[in-house]
């Protein structure tokens, strides 16, 4: 399938058999409507927000696999000091779309992606795919992404008066404080 005509397109990448279409954040609704009406992606499977805070800051050492498989006899250090590719902004929001046709033989999938920073909002797609309602509320609740135009944007999994957004990388994992640990 050709995605070159998607409005407000930034890039199209193909990796591991999955297509990722990145569009400008402000043009998300336009691109969504195009994908639904022109390309037939009538089914929104999932919305995932990912926090890339700290990504690309430390090198990941050790054994690295590659696309052709893994060779046990290669030295384990050939990937030393490698860093993952940097990301454009802190948060990504991925929309996994499927074209559902009754009796079809194959499923066509695409990942629509937008990027935003802390304090920036993402247009809501509830008007395009009604199922986005709860998915967006979850992304708001756990990752703190503001969805502009969502009819009912409030917390869904955490308590209404919860502080912070638990799935962010700067949110502590918690645990009991232990005496005599650290600099004491």
């Amino acid at each position: 399938m050709n995605f070159a005509d998607v409005p407000r397109l930034t890039s199209v990448t193909e990796e591991r058999g999955e297509t990722t279409v990145v569009v400008e954040t402000a043009g998300l609704r336009e691109a969504s409507e195009y994908l639904r009406d022109e390309s037939g992606f009538n089914f929104l499977a999932d919305i995932t927000a990912t926090d890339y805070l700290g990504w690309n800051e430390r090198t990941v050492a050790g054994y690295w696999g590659h696309r052709g498989g893994r060779d046990i006899n290669r030295p384990g250090s050939w990937g030393l000091a490698k860093k993952p590719e940097p990301k454009p902004k802190r948060f990504s929001v991925s929309y996994h779309l499927v074209s559902v046709v009754s009796g079809a033989r194959r499923a066509t999938r695409v990942r629509l992606q937008v990027w935003c920073d802390e304090g920036e909002s993402v247009p809501s797609v509830v008007s395009v795919w009604p199922t986005a309602d709860w998915h967006e509320r979850e992304a708001y609740d756990l990752m703190g992404i503001e969805f502009e135009g969502h009819p009912n944007l409030k917390r869904i999994l955490m308590d209404d008066d919860w502080q912070g957004h638990p799935l962010r990388k700067d949110y502590p994992i918690g645990g009991e404080p232990v005496r005599f640990s650290g600099a004491e």
Partner: peptide
């Protein structure tokens, strides 16, 4: 073990419908 960097979405048919798993790895 370390897993090469990348992002994948795998969907399987669970007893309840499409069960998707979206995984991002930084190579760690």
């Amino acid at each position: 073990y370390r897993v090469p960097a990348g992002e994948v979405y795998v969907a399987v048919e669970s007893a309840r419908g499409e069960l998707g798993c979206y995984v991002v790895s930084d190579g760690g």
